[in-house]
Design a protein around this nucleic acid. Structure first.
Length: 276
DNA sequence: GCCCAGGGAATCG
DNA sequence: CGATTCCATGGG
């Protein structure tokens, strides 16, 4: 439930939500600490997200002429339309899941912009989180739109005539040619968000992998973080360690259908507690 | 200098 | 097929 109060979107009595855990867990690369919360873009609108006691508040930092429709976008983006209390109770019937969740119980899987998620996770391959953020910031500063002190993430249209060499100048390395191919396939209409949304998880993954530099892991991140395929379970180096050490006999049945949401708790636990 | 990072493509056997 | 190697860059 939310209300519109004083040009802000106010979600009342939000539980099972921690902004630090959610914005800093490695699923999003364009949110920064700001005042008592975080600043970033929701549906192309720059905003300030913070807690006021138990209320979660989204304050647009630019003019927003349709606050009601923006509020619905916020609800979806922040994953406030999913019953996390119920999901975590189900996951916690498995003892290892229960322990993983206890290390960061306030993580939520965001519903981010498709194009931004696609490009940022192409950049993420064989890379580390601070440097991913740095490259994504450079991409935005160079080709995004200036909004106050911030820059929006570039659109596919705005990247239409950018060359591989220009991407390489942003220190992307070998990923420059992959970004170029992704932008081209989006602009050509070869890859369409609406199509991917209508397809099954498996078929949507098959489509995404047609992009150069997009393999199973990057595709799974895009499917989970921007296309609402919650059964998607991205496997990176940390998750592989977790699977060996925590789930040698496979994933528990309690997370079925929502493996991706469970994956975030496991990923966070593994990154902070497992040995290399 | 070596190792690693929210991997994937190219190559090899 | 599966297994290995290379790819750019920067921090530890």
């Amino acid at each position: 439930m939310y209300k519109l109060i004083d040009n802000k979107v106010v979600f009342l009595n939000v539980e099972d939500y921690n902004l630090d855990e959610t914005f800093l867990c490695g699923q999003a690369f364009r949110w920064d600490k700001y005042k008592d919360g975080f600043s970033g873009f929701i549906n192309k609108t720059l905003c300030y997200v913070y807690f006021d006691n138990s209320n979660l508040i989204v304050e647009p930092l630019v003019v927003c002429n349709d606050l009601n429709s923006f509020a619905k976008k916020c609800e979806k983006f922040l994953s406030l339309d999913i019953d996390y209390k119920m999901l975590k109770e189900r996951f916690s019937k498995n003892e290892i899941m229960k322990k993983s969740i206890s290390y960061a119980p306030g993580i939520r899987v965001l519903n981010q912009d498709f194009f931004e998620t696609l490009l940022t996770f192409i950049i993420s391959q064989n890379n580390n989180i601070p440097r991913i953020k740095k490259i994504v910031d450079e991409l935005s500063k160079n080709y995004g739109e200036k909004v106050g002190d911030f820059y929006s993430f570039p659109t596919a249209e705005s990247l239409k005539n950018i060359s591989i060499e220009e991407y390489a100048q942003l220190k992307m390395g070998f990923r420059a040619k992959y970004i170029f191919d992704a932008v081209q396939k989006i602009n050509d209409g070869e890859i369409k968000e609406e199509t991917l949304l209508s397809l099954s998880y498996e078929d949507a993954q098959t489509e995404l992998i047609k992009i150069k530099g997009v393999g199973p892991k990057v595709a799974d991140c895009v499917l989970l973080f921007s296309l609402e395929k919650y059964e998607s379970f991205p496997k990176d180096v940390w998750i592989n360690r977790a699977l060996e050490q925590m789930f040698p006999n496979g994933l528990p049945k309690e997370i079925k259908g929502y493996e991706g949401i469970a994956q975030q708790y496991i990923f966070h636990y593994a990154r902070n507690n497992l040995e290399k």
